[in-house]
């Protein structure tokens, strides 16, 4: 306690608060004050018992319909597709380079029509992702976003590795410049959620069949909607 006075180089506007000493009294007073303290504690707990309005427990699976995550909640990386189903990713691989644990693999190809470099598959490994949000931040085109669909549990770990883009082809801006709809169709090739060129991406493992393309197709819209079908499908595969 000798240090209490010195070492305080910057005594701006305030000092110290010292812990109070616990007092001991005579035997009988101790007994009664002890019982009183226990009763006061009981009063607090009985107050909660008798007031159902203070209950804060959420009945989780039952309240799914009303349960809404915060808009910034980071649970599932998704690629933003506009109303025409087009994304803005150019395959520049900045996110790929900035990912701290190599959870992102951006596979590029050259376009069959124009020969330009473009996105083939955007493969994300949910199992090694730490949800640090760096990919979303560094993307110069605002392609990615973190979605709030947190129900990501699956029965097959291969289901954690999936393709985020719905088609291989040029970004929305470039595609809009192509006037001929026939040529536009040729530039685009659809991509399903699984069966990419990366190990574990829906491929065959020892004793486990490869995920079928028809089964593993994404339901199209926001990425999170597949989680239910994934789960049941995964369990089917395991059998």
């Amino acid at each position: 306690m000798m240090q209490a006075t010195d070492k305080q180089e910057n005594p701006t506007r305030s000092g110290l608060v010292t812990a109070p000493e616990l007092k001991r009294h005579g035997f009988f007073r101790n007994v009664f004050s002890g019982i009183k303290s226990l009763l006061e504690g009981m009063k607090v707990t009985f107050h909660y018992l008798s007031h159902p309005s203070t209950v804060v427990t959420q009945q989780y699976p039952e309240n799914r319909a009303t349960l809404k995550m915060m808009e910034r909640y980071r649970a599932l990386l998704t690629m933003i597709h506009d109303e025409n189903g087009l994304h803005k990713c150019t395959g520049c691989q900045i996110c790929h380079d900035n990912c701290p644990n190599a959870s992102i693999n951006v596979v590029t190809r050259s376009n069959p029509v124009s020969g330009k470099k473009e996105l083939d598959r955007y493969i994300w490994r949910m199992d090694s992702c730490t949800f640090c949000n760096l990919c979303v931040q560094v993307c110069p085109f605002g392609v990615l976003k973190m979605d709030g669909s947190f129900e990501g549990a699956v029965y097959d770990r291969r289901l954690f590795v999936f393709t985020l883009n719905h088609y291989a082809g040029p970004a929305a801006g470039l595609l809009a410049k192509v006037a001929d709809p026939e040529e536009r169709k040729k530039m685009i090739e659809p991509r399903d959620r699984y069966s990419g060129p990366v190990p574990l991406n829906g491929q065959e493992l020892a004793g486990v069949k490869a995920l079928k393309k028809a089964e593993s197709g994404c339901c199209g819209g926001s990425g999170g909607c597949c989680s239910d079908s994934q789960g049941s499908q995964g369990s089917k595969e395991m059998k």
Binding site: L16, V17, A19
Partner: peptide, 8 residues
């Protein structure tokens, strides 16, 4: 303004 809390 805040205080540093110490014990005895």
């Amino acid at each position: 303004a805040f205080d540093v809390v110490i014990g005895k």
